[in-house]
């Protein structure tokens, strides 16, 4: 399911990232790669703040929908 559906405080693992190369690569550089763990810190109507590789990243709903866990 897409990341945007996960709940606050869950720790999930990335299974797949859909979308264009550029976006995927940009996300990868931030730490979003298949197999990586994500800790959901906060949700705001689909927009999310998550912890990935020790850093705090804010994502909007569109992007969160493209990350499958």
């Amino acid at each position: 399911m897409p990341l945007s559906m996960a709940d606050i405080d869950e720790i999930v693992v990335i299974k797949r990232i859909s979308g264009s190369d550029e976006i995927k690569q940009h996300l990868a550089e931030l730490g979003f790669v298949v197999g990586e763990e994500i800790h959901i810190v906060s949700k705001n109507g689909g927009n999310m703040i998550v912890k990935v590789k020790d850093s705090r990243i804010a994502l909007d709903k569109g992007l969160a929908n493209r990350i499958f866990i």
């Binding site: 931030l30 705090r56 990243i57 804010a58 569109g62």
Partner: peptide, 9 residues
């Protein structure tokens, strides 16, 4: 554009 931003501590 999609919103992606690192939030510093």
């Amino acid at each position: 554009a999609p919103f992606v931003m690192e939030l510093p501590a």
